[in-house]
Nucleic acid binder design. Structure first.
Lengths: 356, 356
DNA sequence: TTGTAGGCGTTATCAT
DNA sequence: ATGATAACGCCTACAA
């Protein structure tokens, strides 16, 4: 086993074994077409040279990379902090590994997502949270590679995996009004990239529509001051609840657009000396792993995050394999999971001002 | 903009613009060396053909991929469920993106990690949790690519990022004995791949040594029945605590080797009608995001997970860039974070049998 | 069963 | 300022 500093190539092996490059290639890819003795002689030569086929050269001739790209308009460092994304990635991984594909994560490169896409050696993309209004979508789609879009809208001609956001939000709001709540605030998720015009059909707006519909059934209206948007983090949830309080809101219930936000809100509620759900009920969204282990366990709208990832990859692989699946758009259902963080409002009446 | 079905190549652009391939290449890579008019004519031709340089072909000549590989001996679907890994990935991403590198996740391909490594088009690896005893380490290292190993041991000749596990565990145990605890159990992490011989210097054994040392200072011994190992998940923590209880252990405190395990253990404690920390104190390990938001907030040993990822990538990039950093082995420190899940034991005496 | 030769799409070298 | 030509390392008709 000699290291010359230079990586051994197929030619080196061919020379050492006294055969042609073709035979070396066969020895690795189609051993059946070689005389057993020849094959083993070649393997020996390869071993002694430490030869391994160069993956890039191989990709170039085979015109296939064996990896799928996960595309995100945000920095990876940010989204890996989001348990939602981790669960999604787990689903993507499961389906990808099942089919022998590796994963390549793609985020903006020096400010440009399209540039990163151009550099990526993948057979197709799964894009998460890529808005149709993103300035680079057109350029990205021009890559010509198949792409499945998750949690996005306004891309009718593109394969998509979506969630019935409105339905889930509606169920959450209905649950609260059924318990008797009338003073409700919404802690929402603002678009990650404020410079882009928010899509009129964003996740935020779909969930908001669901909340509104659920509350409207008992005549409850949602004024702008009752809707506070921040990022989908725990800290943001805490801060947003505090902001609502400072704005004079005295809700008996909180509709949070993510579990992380809900956790932060619960924290914020306690910091004011109030209790969950005694004084304030909280409903989350997502049903992340820890939701059921919180104290009290979180009532939340479960979405099949992991399944989202799996379905996206399955759909993508169909395209990569040249198939044309009948259902290009798939919408996954939500489930309201009622746990301990919601209860009837205190004395069936809202907190009055002057208590904080 | 015409789509012929076949992807446009540099030759197509050269023909259309009436120049050589070289000039087209220059137009994209070294525009300065071209007459402005020529450059813009080439760009127009490229645009109209929808041409984009093929990343694989480019990699082949440049002998550089611009991506770093994250290597894990477990299935990605499993580790993405682990918040610890997410935090680590966030650190890796941050450092990688900072330097314009993309991320490629590599897990065993059809049972073989070495096979997956062989297919990966990366400039180097960050391996997480790769034991020196792994049957394929030798083969992996033979790839010739630089590799930084995180959370592993027995790889003296390999660059490593490690944690002072023993010290952190020691601090946790000392904290408990200082509070007066004498009946303590350990909920550990068993090797992910039971078929491989567990390293005598694994994370598990290092932390165990730390726990033992801390308890020994007051003469407390840790019998085998007081050490229950499972996977690093919430559910496993719950189950392992129950198992200890069924084995007759009546601890006043739990040393958990991960926060996930600690969360599960807290759940298990409550299921028996006991309270945390009133009846049983719990100490975790990691200090994941939600730890501080639990009720009670979790006392835990914080490790700089994110920093681990960042440091690993920085070290790796140094090697990729041909440098030879002086410090090949870096050990990061832990911090004991005392929160509400630990308190003095009930009546300063252990629970007696017969109460469960 | 094995070898020859061309192609994959780009960049690098060296001319002009 | 531009071009011709040779790598880069492998795969694969097609030929022998």
């Amino acid at each position: 086993l000699v290291h010359t500093g230079r990586r051994a190539t197929i030619t080196d092996v061919a020379d050492k074994a006294g055969v042609s490059k073709t035979s070396v290639s066969f020895a690795f890819n189609k051993p059946d077409r070689l005389h057993p003795d020849t094959a083993s002689r070649i393997r020996d030569a390869a071993e002694s040279l430490g030869y391994r086929p160069h993956p890039v050269a191989r990709m170039l001739t085979q015109r296939r990379t064996g990896t799928i790209g996960v595309l995100t308009p945000q920095a990876l460092a940010v989204i890996f902090d989001n348990p939602f994304f981790s669960a999604f990635s787990a689903g993507v991984s499961a389906a990808a590994e099942e089919s022998g594909y590796a994963l390549h994560f793609i985020s903006p490169l020096r400010g440009s997502l399209a540039r990163a896409v151009g550099r990526a050696t993948v057979d197709g993309f799964v894009a998460i949270g890529l808005s149709a209004a993103h300035p680079e979508v057109e350029e990205i789609r021009r890559s010509g590679l198949p792409m499945v879009v998750v949690d996005s809208t306004g891309m009718a001609d593109q394969p998509t995996i979506d969630l019935d956001d409105q339905d889930g939000a509606h169920a959450a709001a209905e649950h609260l009004v059924a318990l008797g709540h009338r003073e409700v605030i919404v802690l929402g998720i603002e678009a990650p990239e404020p410079e882009h015009e928010p899509s009129p059909d964003s996740i935020m707006s779909r969930r908001l529509a669901g909340y509104r519909a659920g509350l409207a059934s008992v005549g409850v209206h949602l004024p702008p001051e009752s809707i506070i948007a921040g990022s989908a983090t725990i800290e943001s949830g805490r801060v947003c609840f505090r902001r609502a309080w400072e704005l004079g809101r005295r809700p008996t219930a909180i509709l949070a657009m993510s579990d992380a936000i809900a956790i932060g809100a619960m924290r914020g509620v306690r910091e004011l000396g109030l209790s969950v759900p005694g004084d304030v009920s909280v409903v989350g969204f997502d049903d992340i792993d820890v939701a059921q282990y919180l104290d009290p366990p979180l009532t939340t709208v479960r979405q099949p995050v992991r399944l989202k990832g799996e379905e996206a990859v399955r759909l993508l692989l169909a395209f990569i394999n040249g198939e044309t699946p009948p259902d290009i758009h798939r919408t996954l259902a939500t489930t309201l999971i009622v746990r301990g963080s919601t209860a009837v409002p205190p004395r069936a009446a809202p907190l009055t001002n002057g208590r904080g």
